[in-house]
Nucleic acid binder design. Structure first.
Lengths: 175, 175
DNA sequence: CATTAAGTTCATTTTTCCTTGAACCTTGGT
DNA sequence: ACCAAGGTTCAAGGAAAAATGAACTTAATG
């Protein structure tokens, strides 16, 4: 009920329209998923607004619809692009960059893994080695339970690392 | 820096001592992973301290070592237990509850999925239906692009849902 | 029962993270 | 070369989350 402007007034400028119910629902949906992985709500807002728009949108239009500041939208677009969750669309004869969602779930999930998870995993060997050294020092007196725990860490890293190809394969079946 | 009351020194050591380098390193490691999934740092601290202890620890001991308040540790223990990341150990003749880590990665990962992710997924059908209705109302005039997007959502939910058994199987190989 | 240790809860404070807004780049057009 | 539109960056302010601390509940023990 009480919808404002239907979808778009494409060629035209200042869209300070109120968000539609549809957009609100989508924002809720995406925000809940985003929270699990620690994304700020603004990301969900931007993604939802693009999701609800059949046409690619320029930053200015998103600002108007989302009720966020230029800065927030600029940062959000950058990160969403880095994740592969949105794609820039270059329109000839227009200086602005337009954006469309990436609606291929596989690509979004893979982007998240590649950007957020794997970099952390890569740190593990160094960290575990350091932990092992600390442990080894104080361990000379015979605290072997600790060493067993550190060995656990190594095992975790190995198993997780070995699983990533399978995991990518699993989400590769999405689309 | 005021230190809490010496309290009873039961059978042994680790009390209100300063955290060791080992513990600091472990906290960093766990905190980084925890951040990805939105856990507060205190969870990592508690888990790390238990990880570094060959013996199960009671709350009071954890408080002393972590430098956190009673309240924070109480809450943290509860949530970690809900996730299956730690286990209570009942010691006969001691009123306190002791805790040990669950070092089986599979169980921790499964706990996270079951507690944090799947409940969210279960909401999707309702939400999508609601979105479909909103969309259908305004859609009568022929905005079929939106309907296609909503259909996308359904597809996502279906694929993710169908993948969870495989995912559980994948992490089932861990240990 | 009365006592007291163990643990929980929750209003308040503290900390962390997000957003804002304005200054600052960059690039196309004239 | 200059202007202006499009976009980025970052210090400062504000909002949300987490930690604190004290009052409260629970349950062993004499």
């Amino acid at each position: 009920m009480l919808r404002s402007s239907p979808a778009l007034a494409p060629t035209d400028s200042h869209e300070s329209a109120r968000r539609s119910d549809l957009e609100e629902e989508l924002i809720n949906l995406f925000a809940r998923m985003g929270r699990i992985v620690g994304f700020p709500r603004s990301f969900a807002e931007i993604y939802a607004i693009l999701f609800a728009s059949p046409e690619p949108m320029a930053m200015e239009q998103i600002i108007g619809r989302a009720g966020l500041s230029q800065g927030a939208v600029s940062q959000g677009l950058r990160q969403l692009r880095a994740l592969g969750a949105i794609q820039p669309v270059y329109v000839p004869g227009d200086r602005r960059t337009f954006f469309n969602i990436e609606d291929n779930l596989r690509k979004v999930a893979a982007g998240f893994l590649k950007e957020q998870v794997l970099p952390q995993l890569e740190d593990w060997p160094d960290r575990i080695e350091r932990i092992g050294r600390i442990c080894g020092d104080s361990d000379s007196k015979g605290e072997s339970a600790l060493s067993a725990r550190v060995e656990k860490l190594r095992g975790w890293h190995q198993r997780i690392s070995r699983s990533t190809p399978e995991l990518l394969q699993l989400i590769g079946k999405w689309s």
